[in-house]
């Protein structure tokens, strides 16, 4: 057991040490290409406040293009908060404050039109949240509002997206039925398909498998691996095996701080921080 006060004291210096911003983390050195050049998305010294509650402390993290990054950590440590800042969806909450810089392809996401950030950085939520529309309309919603329907037929986009999300076979005969007629796992894959339909460059997934059975989970994991060459993926998960299976690098969060971000192998076999090791081996959290 690590006592809270002890952990609290230990973090600040370590966080800076592991911030990929300043020093090369094990991840970046491992990268085959020049690591920083291919960082698709980068957070630098991000602090986030919900009202008076300081939820993220100086988080700096890089997400490499065409890689899967997993975020792990105990409940309430700020994984979702961090993820939700990456596509500015936290801006919809009142009374929040974000400091620091998040860049997409080297450009500050605050300088983009907000709808553009969100189109380019797609998101799948913890609970499936299909719209109260048909399967077809759910998928076509994004392309429609983003004016992407010119030139391509809607049916084509729907088929392609459903195939990418491994849902086509199950859904092709009921495209015009309500999305709520699908099972929970199918709904989650529909939400993934819906996010993919706008061709996001980055896909954020917040515990996408938490409500799913092992078969649906396996399908989604396969899907993530196969999506890698088309987009950059960030996935929050409580399932260590899942992180180990799909992620190239893994970031460990604790109490609003990024403790360690390294190659997944390193994190699980040879973590640099004691807290990471304690968490991985189930000693707390």
């Amino acid at each position: 057991m690590v006592s809270t006060s002890e952990t609290k004291m230990a973090y600040p210096p370590e966080t800076t040490a592991y911030a990929p911003e300043n020093k090369m983390s094990p991840t970046s050195t491992e990268g085959t290409k020049s690591a920083t050049a291919t960082a698709k998305l980068r957070a630098a010294n991000v602090n986030f406040h919900y009202g008076s509650f300081h939820a993220l402390h100086d988080v700096s993290m890089e997400f490499q293009e065409n890689k899967v990054t997993a975020l792990i950590g105990p409940s309430g440590c700020g994984k979702s908060t961090f993820l939700r800042n990456l596509n500015r969806i936290n801006e919809t909450l009142r009374d929040t404050r974000l400091e620091g810089e998040i860049t997409l392809d080297g450009q500050n996401i605050m300088d983009f039109d907000i709808t553009e950030v969100r189109r380019r950085v797609g998101m799948v939520f913890q609970r499936p949240n299909p719209f109260p529309k048909s399967i077809f309309e759910n998928i076509i919603y994004g392309p429609k509002i983003n004016g992407m329907l010119k030139g391509t037929s809607a049916a084509e986009i729907v088929e392609k997206s459903l195939r990418r999300a491994a849902l086509w076979e199950e859904a092709k005969d009921k495209l015009h039925e309500s999305a709520y007629a699908l099972s929970g796992g199918q709904q989650q894959r529909l939400c993934i398909a819906r996010a993919l339909a706008v061709n996001p460059e980055v896909l954020l997934l917040d515990e996408p498998c938490s409500a799913l059975d092992p078969i649906a989970t396996a399908k989604i994991e396969d899907l993530l691996v196969s999506l890698k060459d088309q987009c950059t993926i960030v996935i929050v998960t409580h399932n260590m095996q899942q992180a180990a299976r799909v992620a190239d690098t893994t970031g460990f969060f604790l109490m609003g701080r990024l403790i360690e971000h390294a190659k997944t192998d390193m994190i699980f076999k040879n973590p640099a921080c004691k807290e990471t090791e304690d968490y991985i081996t189930g000693r707390f959290g």
């Binding site: 969806i89 919809t92 709808t115 969100r118 189109r119 719209f131 919603y141 994004g142």
Partner: peptide
């Protein structure tokens, strides 16, 4: 979650209200 679903696809606030929230 319904609002966020639409916003996360790049919908504007009004679009979200008109095409998702009111129908929902």
């Amino acid at each position: 979650s319904m609002r966020e679903g639409a916003l996360a696809l790049g919908a504007t606030k009004w679009k979200t209200i008109a095409t998702v929230i009111v129908p929902a």
